[in-house]
Design a protein around this nucleic acid. Structure first.
Length: 160
DNA sequence: GCCAACGTTGGC
DNA sequence: GCCAACGTTGGC
C-alpha cells in the first residue's frame, strides 16, 4: 500500500526545475539532518510512494509538483564526505546515522499551490505543513489530503 | 533581513 | 534529567 509524503526543498538549493533537468529526472534526497525525518526516510518510505515537492524558504512557498520514490532508504553518503555541506563528523559509515531515498519526477504542477492557498482550503485544516512552526522536512500526508491537493492542482496532469 | 519557533548541545 | 544557550528553519 503506497503512502503519501511531503518533501521540502529550498529552491535556491534544489528546485523542481533542477529535478526536471536532472539525469532520468531522478535525484537522491540527500542532506536530511533531523531524526524524525530520518526515521521516515529510513523506515517508512517505500518504492512507489509518492510525495509532494514543496518549495520552502521562498516567497511564495508552496507545492510545485509530485515525485515518486524509486529507491527506498539507504545511507546518506554525503554525511561521510568532509567536502560536503552535509558532512557530519559524528556519522560512522559502519553505523550510518543519516539516510536518503531516491525520487523521480512525476509531474510539475501548472502553477504553484501556495501555502496560503493550502491554509484556506477545506479538507486541509490538519495538514502538517500548514502548522505554525512546523519545520519537519519529510512529512506524511494523508490520502484525503493528497486528493484534495491534487484537485487544487487541477486539470490534466502537466507531465514532466 | 527580521525574528519566532524549533531541535540540539552541553554544563551542571 | 534539567534547561539555558545556541544554531537553524522558514514565513514574511
Amino acid at each position: 500500500m503506497a503512502r503519501y509524503w511531503l518533501l521540502k526543498s529550498e529552491p535556491s538549493v534544489f528546485s523542481i526545475d533542477d529535478l526536471r533537468r536532472a539525469p532520468r529526472q531522478t535525484t537522491s534526497w540527500e542532506g536530511v539532518r533531523n531524526y524524525q525525518a530520518r526515521n521516515f526516510l529510513r523506515d517508512d518510505m517505500q518504492v512507489g510512494d509518492q510525495a509532494l515537492f514543496y518549495h520552502s524558504n521562498v516567497t511564495p512557498a508552496g507545492i510545485a509538483g509530485i515525485v515518486e520514490v524509486v529507491r527506498a532508504g539507504y545511507p546518506d553518503h554525503t554525511a561521510f564526505d568532509p567536502e560536503s555541506r552535509y558532512y557530519d563528523v559524528k556519522s560512522d559509515p559502519a553505523r550510518p546515522t543519516w539516510f536518503m531515498v531516491d525520487v523521480r519526477l512525476v509531474r510539475v504542477f501548472p502553477r504553484l499551490i501556495t501555502l496560503d492557498e493550502l491554509k484556506r482550503t477545506p479538507g486541509l485544516e490538519t495538514m502538517l505543513v500548514i502548522r505554525r512552526g512546523m519545520r519537519l522536512s519529510v512529512q506524511p500526508v494523508t490520502e484525503s489530503e493528497w486528493h484534495v491537493v491534487l484537485a487544487l492542482a487541477g486539470g490534466e496532469p502537466a507531465l514532466a
